[in-house]
Amino acid sequence: MRFIRFSLLLNTFLNKSNKPKFLKFINIGIFFSLFAISSALITFYIENKIDKLEYSLSENHILQKDNKQTIEHFVQLKVVLKSIMISDKAITELYELTASTKLGQYLITVDDLYLPNLFIEGQESAKLFKEMTEEGLWEGLQEMVSEWFGKESKEYKDYTEALESFYKYVDVYEKDYEKYYDRIFNYDLNIVADEILNKEKSINYWDHEFQKENKKFDKLFYEMFILLEIMEKLFYELSLAYEDDIFKLNKEIVGLSKQESKIIIVAFIFQFIVFIIIQYFEVLSIQPKKLKNAKRKS
């Protein structure tokens, strides 16, 4: 209750005998506030550094996320394409086997077996492949492979060979298969019936352009799978590199945080020592005055 009365507080200050005590408390207060300022400044400095590292860490996380998504797309694309190709091939081989029978050679023609595939592929993927080859996508990826694995690596050599082979067959997409639309979606059964009576379009002679084009597609996809496989390997290794970078950055940030605590403790010890020394000399400077005053009185 005493200290609520302002006049009493003021009298406490004005009392000469209390002044050294107050000075001591004020000095301790100044010491703690200096320590608090220095800790805050140290924290400010180190937080600034950590901030920059966290920024790099965030960037790496985003790159890693994008990379993982790319890998996912590659794998999905490969799996789906391969599944379709395997089942397609199995059915085609079954038809080819059937066509090699006495009955089959009349029933299965190149129009029936190979033309639909050429037509659909030509429609669906032609634009995509055209964009990929014109924009130099494969060459760009080749650069990446060369930078990552090295020009002397097996991966680069395989990639280059596959790419050369790929370009040999990619012209299959330049052909216009849309002109066969009416031939495929033919509702006139008289035309279909006439095919039964001869072996003109039989698939057994392997001399028709549709068969050759179909084989080109098979080879094209085979080379594309090799390219995709090497790219997948590159992205997996890139993913490991990003993980390494993220780990290093995390370690650096944790290191800086620990360093911050240590610096603050060292600063405290240093300031404490300085404060003790200053207090000692201050007390020492007050004591001779007291002795002189005491001597004068006596």
């Binding site: 029933l107 077996l113 639909p116 659909i120 095919e195």
Partner: peptide
Amino acid sequence: LRERNFWIK
């Protein structure tokens, strides 16, 4: 499309 004419023939 591959099967379109086989069984009808």
